[in-house]
Amino acid sequence: MLIKQKLEESFFKILMVISTIFVLGSLLLILGTVLWRGLPALDLAMLTQAPQGGYYLGKEGGILNAILGSLCLAGGATIVAVILSLPIALYLQLYPVPHFTKNWIRLSLDILWGTPSIVYGAIGFTLMIYLGMRASLLGGIIVLSLLELPIMVRGMEEAVSMVPKALLESSYSLGATRFETAFKVVVRQTLPGLITAILLAFGRGIGDAASVLFTAGYTDNLPTSLLRPVASLPLAVFFQLGTPFPAVQDRAYAAALVLIVLVLGLSITSRLLSTRFTKNIIR
């Protein structure tokens, strides 16, 4: 009996160690692969030029259009999403919301979170046709902001829920209204958490391809107007990989590397920020 137990425990322990190594290994393999194939293809021209004539046949040019386009798309979408999410998160956490309403809003946010981004893209495009809009930066921003919304609300809610109740009560007992408490005390207190949520959503937005496929379109020009189509990094990766020329495919790897550096850079920054800011926070 005892030996059987010990064997069972060691068996599962070995399985667990193998799984952990496998998981971490496969994830590191992804980074390694992109680094290994992307780094040789990456040069300064890639980062500083828009595609020139014949770029997709392997000639001169770069992906500046996609880099700037992605920053505009995700940046704009994140700003819109913050404007929408912050009040919702504060409302859900600080105001006396009826039980049913709260559950309903949470359920909706969860469903929005689970909705595939291609569905966002399809709906966005349909509405844009209905409104007579063409694929444009504005369309992309709107769709991406809806995609970021549930992530951001969840993150912000989590941050706000960490605020000690005593802090709220002391603010109320000084005569501050809920609104003042929410936007003056709570926002300041939870700033690191809010920034983390915002950067997380930004990362999701900048990496998403399926939703901007129809709504933002693609162009070789740099973004100039809200109403013009705009390029994006994930689509740059996708389209360049789809060409039959190895030289262009190498550029896809380089573009993927740029994308991954952006996303991971953001993620690490948000982590560092949140540890630095926590100094001034009451626990």
């Binding site: 990496g207 996708f238 996303v263």
Partner: peptide, 8 residues
């Protein structure tokens, strides 16, 4: 947080 195209 790695974008899905990178997985692709």
């Amino acid at each position: 947080g790695i974008p899905s195209v990178v997985y692709g």
